[in-house]
Every structure is written in structure tokens, then in C-alpha cells.
Design a protein around this nucleic acid. Sequence first.
DNA 1: TCCATGTTTCAAGTATTATCGAAATATAAA
DNA 2: TTTATATTTCGATAATACTTGAAACATGGA
Lengths: 123, 123
Amino acid sequence: METLSAAESLAALGHETRLAIFRALVQAGPEGLKAGAVGEALGLAPATLSFHLAHLSRVGLIRGRQESRFIFYSADYSAMGELIAFLTDNCCQGKACLPNAVCAENPDPRCNPEPACEGNSRD
Amino acid sequence: METLSAAESLAALGHETRLAIFRALVQAGPEGLKAGAVGEALGLAPATLSFHLAHLSRVGLIRGRQESRFIFYSADYSAMGELIAFLTDNCCQGKACLPNAVCAENPDPRCNPEPACEGNSRD
DNA sequence: TCCATGTTTCAAGTATTATCGAAATATAAA
DNA sequence: TTTATATTTCGATAATACTTGAAACATGGA
């Protein structure tokens, strides 16, 4: 994942409403939710909802599929995976800042590295 | 980490210049870099640099310490860790979207869960 | 004290983003 | 075909964010 695309994804999630939308879609699972259900759950005006769904779609974090009269949106887990990979590869020190939950379970020594590991870029 | 704070951190990183600043500080290690060195490396006008450093500081992703006439900024790894934890806990499906590099090394079965795990919220 | 250097703050201009009512489009049911 | 429902697009407005030169502030050296 290139830096620009990472920044765009981060910016997309860096808005409370869009973050809430994304979380709702993640919770909903691969099936996703009708656009209207998202708007209802979060109390959003249709135009506002559409604006944010379009934004999330544009950066690839969610996908919409038409199903009869409805449009179901669902989270793209692999896009989120790439984003997390970008953060761990480029924005962590070794893997020092991986979630504790992961590190505690992970024998990989990079999980608790020396204080001053150096560059680990991916792009 | 609450949702609002997560959104603020994501938004802070969701800007190419700030993301570049943060990456540079991560690469620099715990010592960090003088503000001026960051500006020079990225070709930023002093006021612009200061604006973005202040933004990243405000959300807690970096810290500045005065050292003689200079101010050294360094990445706050634990803040990034919390952010990644938030994303894996709230924006992934189980841990399905953790980076492959992590999952490949990790015996935790949640790394490759069934397709349709349900809600796993943290807040 | 005066000067040089590093950094921030201020102020102003520009650009981008968010919101939402109203109109348009699409699909399906009557 | 008409009507109803779901969603998007349009248009206008308001709010926020970004950039930068210039001025202010802070620190250390002469």
C-alpha cells in the first residue's frame, strides 16, 4: 500500500460519522447492511449518509452491491488489513506498538524489541 | 481508546504531510528529530511544519521535548499501539484483517477465523 | 547586553469538506 | 402505467483545515 492511499484511507476513517459507519458494517459481517439501515442506526440524513458511503467506497474500505431495490454496503476486510499492515510496517518501531493482545500471544521476538530498532519500511 | 479519540488520531494521520512526519519520527527512533530536521527532510515551510507538529502533538501521537535551543519530536509508540488495538478490536472481523505477517507467525486461531464472526467491540 | 538561531504564533487568504433540503434516478409493487 | 420506496445527485451554505509571510518568543553564544 502506498503512502498516498494509506493517508486517504486514514482520512476516510478519521471522521466520527464515517468511523461509526465502518464499524457498523464490520459488525454486520460480510452480508453488510442496507444503506437505509445504516442511516437509521446512526440517525443520518439520506444525503449525508450517501456522501459518507461514497467517500468510504472511493477509498476502497467498503463495497456496495445492489440487491433488488436496496443497496447493501459491507466492509472490505482486506482493505482494512492492508491499512493495518501499512501502519505496523511503516509507523511502528519494529512491532513494538502492535496491540498487546497480539504480542502477548505471539512468540515473535519483534513483538518486544529493543528500544531502538531502526527503519522498517515497506513501500 | 474511545471512538472520538480514535477518529482524531486517524484524521491526524490522514494527511500526507503529517503521515510523512510521523513516519520520519518513527524511523528516527525514541530520540526523535529536531523540528528543523523534519522540515528540512520534507521541504516544509516553518509555519506549516509547526502547524502539523502541533496537530500530531495535540492528539498524542508525538511528543516534543526541549533540548537546549532545539525541540526534539518523537513518535509515541504506545499511542500508535492503542490506535492499532482500536482498529483490530473494532474495525476487524475477529482478527481476520490483521497483517498476514503477524498472522503467519501467530498460532492464535483468531488470526484465521471463520468467515462470519460477529461483534467484538471494546469501548 | 546584543545578536543569531530555532520554533511558534498571528493573520489573512485559499481550498476543502460537511450538511441537508429538494430534485432526480432506479427498482419493484399495485 | 402509476405509485411507492430506496438511494443518489445537485446546489447552496456553513464550517473547518491548510498554507505561508511576517512578527513574536525562547534559548544560547559573543
